[in-house]
Design a protein around this nucleic acid. Structure first.
Lengths: 293, 293
DNA sequence: AGCGTCGATCAGCAGGACTTATGGCCGCCG
DNA sequence: CGGCGGCCATAAGTCCTGCTGATCGACGCT
C-alpha cells in the first residue's frame, strides 16, 4: 500500500522506486501483485508514467487512511516503549562537515522518538574496532571498511584546501588556488598514521608525488584537534590541510585557500555492522544517504 | 498484526496457530519479530498461555482499528472490481453431503462478493481431467488425487449404509445394522468403474472379501443417479449403497439401513491445481477444511 | 533517425517464512 | 513426588517470496 501511494504521488514507478530506495522492477512487481490480489486494474501505464484508474483513486484514499492508522498505532506502541527505546551510539571523526548530521538526526528523532543518540569522538581506526566490538552502532569514518562484517555508504566528499599564514599564502597563491607543489619547503602538519592508515597512505602518496618532502609522521598519541593545527600553522613555515568549512572562523594571521585542481578529496563513510537489523539505525543511514544526493 | 490479535483473543499461541492454520513455531517467531520491531514486550509468556502487557493491550486496540480500516479499504476496492470478479468453477459429485457446501459458500460470498460460483456435476475422473485442463477450479472427488500437480484436503467422511426393499431388509436386519455378508445373493447396484477407479476398486474389494459375488461392472456411460438406484432396488433382489442422508426421502417400499461395524467409509476430498494462487479459492478451501473439524 | 525515459519481463540470488523435531517449563494427576 | 501432557522457545532444513541487474518494446523529444 505504501508503495502504491508513493507511485501515485510521484506519478511514475521509476520516480517512486527512487523514493522508496528500491529498484524499478521490484516496484513494478509489487504493484502488479497488488492488482492481482485485488483483482482490479489500479493504474494505466504509459510511457510517460502512470495514472490512477477509478479503482486506483479509491485505493489511494483508502490506503492513506490505513497507513495513517497504522502509523498512529506504531506511535502509540512506541510511546509505551518510552524510555527503553534503544541507545544509538555514533562515532564522530574530527572535522566533520558541520551540517551533515543535523538533518538526518532530526529526521531520526521524529521517526523514532524513543531512540537516544550518543556521540563519541574517535579516530577511524578506533571506530572500526568499536563497531566490530559492538561498542558503536554507526561510525563516520575516512576509509571504506574492509571485510564483509561491516557495511558502509559514502556520506560526504570534501575538497581539501590548505591553511597557511597570511605571508606564506601571499607568496604562492594563484588565481584558481594554490598549487600543491608550491607547498614544497613547508612542513606538513599531519596526523598520526594509526588513526586512519589507508587514508594517511593515500594522502601522503599524493603529497609526495607532488614533490613534497614530509617530515617524520606525527606521534601516535597526538590527535590533530583544530587548536593544534592552527597553532602549528601560526608558528609559521608550515601548512595544514582543511576542508572548506574552515574558511570562516580563523584568526587574522591564518587563511584557508583552495587547492588548484582539487587534488585532495577526503571522503567520509557511514559504517555499521552488516548483521545489525535495527530499524532506527537503518532509518538514520537512509537519511544520511539521501541528504548527500 | 492479525496474528497478534489472534494470539491475544485465543489466549495462547498454540490455539491461535491452529486458528490461523499455521504452526506454533511460525507464530512464535512472528510475534517475536513484531516485538523486536516495536522494541516492546507485548506478551508475558507462561506455561498456560500468554497475557498481554500494557503495551500489548495498546497494540490490541490499535491493531484492531488498523485491521478494520484495512478490511474496509479492501472492500471498497473490491466493490470497484465489481462484476469482473473471477468465476470459480466447482465440480460436484453425485450424493454430496447436503450441508457440506452451504456454510463455506456463504463464507466465500461474504469475503469475496465479486466471485461467482459455477457448479458442474462430474464424476471423480472427469473432475481430475477438468482440473488439469484448467476447466475447473476445485473438484469434490472420491479419491485422493495422485501427482504433485493437484493438492487436496479431505472434506467429508460418510459411513455408507444399504438401500433395500422392505421385505429384503426384514429378513436380514440385525439390531446394530446389516452385516455385509448377509447381502450375499443380492445384486449390487454399482456404478461404472471409470468414474472413480480407485474408489471402485477399494469398494468392490471390500464387498468381495465379505463373500459377495458382484455381477458385471455397470456399463461405462451410465451414471448412477438416485432415480436409477432406487428403481433398481425397488425391482427387488438388489441392494445399493448410500450415505446416511438417504434415510429420509424414500418411498415406502425401500429402506436405508446402516451397516454393522461400518465397513464401508466413503471419503470426499476437495482437489485443486497446486499452482493456483487464487485468493478466493484458498478461502473456500480453508472454509471447507475448517467446517469438517 | 537517434536518443532518453518509461514500464514490463527475465534469470539469478538472498533472506524470510514456514515446516518438523526437539528441549525447557509448569500444572495436573496418580 | 515422579510421570504426563499442555504450553512456549529454539534449532535445522526447505521452499518461496522479493529484490536486483540486465534487457526489451514503446513512446516522446530533439
Amino acid at each position: 500500500m505504501r508503495a502504491f501511494v508513493a507511485v501515485v504521488e510521484e506519478g511514475g514507478m521509476s520516480a517512486a522506486a527512487r523514493r522508496l530506495h528500491l529498484s524499478q522492477p521490484a516496484l513494478s512487481q509489487t504493484i502488479g501483485a497488488l492488482e492481482r490480489e485485488l483483482g482490479v486494474e489500479l493504474l494505466v501505464r504509459s510511457s510517460t508514467g502512470v495514472a490512477a484508474t477509478e479503482a486506483g483513486l479509491t485505493l489511494l484514499t483508502e490506503a492513506r487512511a490505513v497507513l495513517a492508522r497504522h502509523d498512529q498505532a506504531a506511535a502509540a506502541v512506541a510511546r509505551h516503549a518510552g524510555a527503553c527505546g534503544g541507545i544509538l551510539k555514533i562515532g564522530i571523526p574530527l572535522e566533520l562537515p558541520p551540517d551533515l548530521l543535523t538533518g538526518p538526526l532530526a529526521d531520526l528523532a521524529a521517526a523514532y522518538p524513543g531512540t537516544r543518540v550518543l556521540a563519541h569522538h574517535l579516530s577511524t581506526a578506533a571506530q572500526m574496532a568499536a563497531l566490530r566490538a559492538g561498542e558503536l552502532d554507526v561510525g563516520l569514518v575516512r576509509e571504506h571498511p574492509i571485510g564483509p562484517d561491516l557495511d558502509a555508504v559514502q556520506v560526504a566528499e570534501e575538497r581539501l584546501g590548505v591553511l597557511l599564514t597570511v605571508e606564506d599564502a601571499e607568496k604562492i597563491s594563484e588565481p584558481e588556488g594554490i598549487r600543491l607543489d608550491a607547498l614544497a619547503g613547508l612542513d606538513w602538519v599531519g596526523f598520526p598514521r594509526s588513526g586512519s592508515p589507508a587514508w594517511y597512505d593515500e594522502l601522503t602518496a599524493i603529497l609526495r608525488s607532488h614533490g613534497l618532502e614530509l617530515g617524520p609522521p606525527a606521534p601516535e598519541g597526538q590527535e590533530l584537534i583544530p587548536e593544534v593545527k592552527l597553532a602549528a600553522v601560526t608558528a609559521g613555515h608550515a601548512f595544514a590541510l582543511a576542508p572548506p568549512h574552515w574558511r570562516h572562523p580563523l584568526p587574522d594571521t591564518v587563511v584557508w585557500s583552495p587547492l588548484a585542481g582539487h587534488p585532495l578529496v577526503r571522503r567520509t563513510w557511514a559504517a555499521w555492522k552488516a548483521d545489525s537489523h535495527r530499524r532506527d539505525l537503518g532509518h538514520l543511514i537512509v537519511a544520511l544517504d539521501r541528504s548527500t544526493r
